[in-house]
């Protein structure tokens, strides 16, 4: 049984590195990623699981880091936007003009990247089902969908 009491040292496997940080069991993964590990690419927007700006991958699946405790992630592989190095989805977002203010972008790219990794031939329905998790306030989502589809059609 894994257990943590009070503020303790935990090990998180983030973007391929084992990181040691002090965390309270009550600290969210989002807070620890940003404040303790300086991985500010993961964004806080609603803090309530509603907008997906804080999405990271846990063992390859998108999760909302604002609703996950950092201690829950112990023993799992975490990928943040900083862990994606020039993957096709990032290029597609740039080329399709799918970025405006950029604040939803990390969560959007992380989610889209996971989608195309898990479902390389995703149908339009699956794309929509995944992307409806993320709120973008700048675009009409059209260029974002185009970016995702362009990766699927590669």
């Amino acid at each position: 049984m894994i257990e943590f009491h009070d503020k303790s040292i935990i090990e998180l496997y983030v973007n391929g590195d084992l990181k040691t940080v002090a965390a309270r069991p009550a600290d969210t993964l989002l807070f620890i990623l940003r404040e303790s590990l300086g991985l500010t690419g993961t964004k806080n927007s609603c803090g309530n699981g509603d907008c997906n700006s804080c999405t990271v991958l846990l063992d390859g699946w998108p999760v909302k880091s604002c609703l996950m405790l950092a201690v829950e992630a112990v023993g799992h592989e975490i990928t943040t936007i900083e862990g994606l190095q020039d993957v096709p989805m990032q290029k597609a977002f740039v080329e399709k003009s799918a970025i405006q203010c950029g604040y939803c972008t990390p969560g959007m790219i992380i989610n889209s990247h996971a989608l195309t990794t898990i479902y390389p031939d995703a149908s339009d329905e699956i794309i929509e089902e995944w992307l409806e998790s993320n709120i973008c306030r700048c675009t009409g989502y059209k260029e974002i969908c185009e970016a995702v589809k362009s990766v699927i059609n590669m």
């Binding site: 690419g41 936007i81 994606l84 990032q90 977002f93 740039v94 003009s97 950029g102 972008t105 790219i109």
Partner: peptide, 12 residues
Amino acid sequence: IRVDAHDKAAGR
């Protein structure tokens, strides 16, 4: 292409 796009896509 937007001058801010690459950094934004990288989360930087």
